[in-house]
């Protein structure tokens, strides 16, 4: 997974995530929005034809006392947690 930081401040991060599409980005965005300290999370993906970038650009903004990069890490953790919990619930039913 190739990351390219576009803009980085203490409470704001804009990062390009190469090779990903809506499948993962929307899950990640959803998880970030549920994460404590995150005030805004979104991603932008332009279709190639529009002349924009093709890889998604994730933007995260956080509260003053939260580092944006840490929040992203927490978001990724949360996705993994969701996946593990889903696995467990699905296995229990199957």
């Amino acid at each position: 997974m190739d990351l390219r930081v576009i803009e980085k401040e203490e409470t704001m991060l804009s990062i390009e995530i190469a090779g990903e599409d809506h499948t993962f980005m929307n899950v990640l965005k959803g998880a970030l929005l549920e994460t404590d300290g995150v005030t805004a999370a979104t991603y932008d993906m332009n279709p190639e034809q529009s002349g924009g970038q093709t890889d998604p650009v994730l933007t995260v903004k956080t509260d003053v006392d939260v580092n944006a990069l840490d929040a992203l890490e927490a978001g990724a953790d949360r996705v993994m947690e969701k996946a593990d919990d889903f696995d467990a619930a699905f296995d229990a039913a199957a």
């Binding site: 990351l3 990640l28 990724a76 996946a83 696995d87």
Partner: peptide, 22 residues
């Protein structure tokens, strides 16, 4: 069942990769 679990696993592995990259 396999399809569903593998799909969830693919999402998980990408999150794992992202965390390592971060």
């Amino acid at each position: 069942e396999e399809l569903t679990l593998r799909a969830v696993d693919s999402i998980r592995s990408r999150a794992d990769e992202l965390r390592d990259a971060v």
